[in-house]
Design a protein around this nucleic acid. Sequence first.
DNA 1: AATTTATCTAAACGTTCGTTTAGTTATTTG
DNA 2: CAAATAACTAAACGAACGTTTAGATAAATT
Lengths: 187, 187
Amino acid sequence: MARKKQYNEDDVVEKAMNLFWKNGYEATSMQMLEKEMGINKFSIYSSFGNKHGLFLESLKHYKTKVSATLLKFKNGTNGVEDIKQFFHDSINSNFKVGNQKGCLVTNTYNEFSENEDQLIKDEMTSFMGNLKALIIEKLQMDASKDEDTVIKQANYLLLAKHGLAAAARVNTAQEIEDYIEMTFKNL
Amino acid sequence: MARKKQYNEDDVVEKAMNLFWKNGYEATSMQMLEKEMGINKFSIYSSFGNKHGLFLESLKHYKTKVSATLLKFKNGTNGVEDIKQFFHDSINSNFKVGNQKGCLVTNTYNEFSENEDQLIKDEMTSFMGNLKALIIEKLQMDASKDEDTVIKQANYLLLAKHGLAAAARVNTAQEIEDYIEMTFKNL
DNA sequence: AATTTATCTAAACGTTCGTTTAGTTATTTG
DNA sequence: CAAATAACTAAACGAACGTTTAGATAAATT
């Protein structure tokens, strides 16, 4: 046969993901990706088809990366406290990664909200929908909450997570902690 | 002499502003601006220098557009209620404009946060700083709040406004109203 | 060791971007 | 009415984008 790939696809996807995460889709050029991933354009195209394909693969990689946090959230039995903990975990895991900014899914959701790329929008909507369902599930653990309150609080928390993601791009860790604390004060 | 301009600069800046508002800076091309403003590229460049200059003029135009709302907020004497009202006013004036999305300043702040364009970043930071100062001023009207609480609540509200701006891009008016209501519940 | 073939490098592709320039049109002034 | 000149149209600019292709390289098989 012939020579083998000199790179591991999972490794270079991780690097691509970090770059997309930091800059967004449009602002990340193939040239930047080449440099960050440490492989040639040809290799990128032969492995992932095109820039769009690489981005989808990066999103998939991101989801497996946050799956542990999501699973912990799913398995929680403490209602609102689980949601709050989930917010903390999301922020912490993002800060741990390095210089990343906010939540890749939320960032992508914002960047593509005016875009005609239905494939990506659908994936983001589905991700957000799952999150909302989980939040509702946790809120419903408090039997004293009527259905209307649950829905309103779920929307509130989803939007708060939006704010949180935006905040993670410019605010300090302490400000973000304070923000989460305030957000859950009245639930 | 010679012929006069067949367009009013303020009129075309307003149209440019709306397009920037809807799509952001990068995603708005000169070709789109030509079409939306109804004048030729040459005219745009002779009036505003370049795309960057046109954007700065659009931001200036936006600020005069929201100055009434801001002044009303500034002159309020009802503390937290003024802030809440300001949030409502901001959203309503944005919805009134048409298909615009969120707050142009916040959108710009987000789009340029990773950018090296210090001029625009400084202008956004200054705008945000003024807003924060006003919020602090209103919060301090409640004498029972200590300094630490005021700062924390101000940060919380600024981030909430971030979330609000992001929300305005994808949520319904009712959801946004509910979000504001929830946001102020615990202040 | 020779042959095969997938992976590599690097240059070029067509498009679109923001910007500029040459040439035409129209209005104001003498 | 004619000359002057600013505003117009439209074409072209170089640079950067995502993508493709041609040719060199190197490892696995015979």
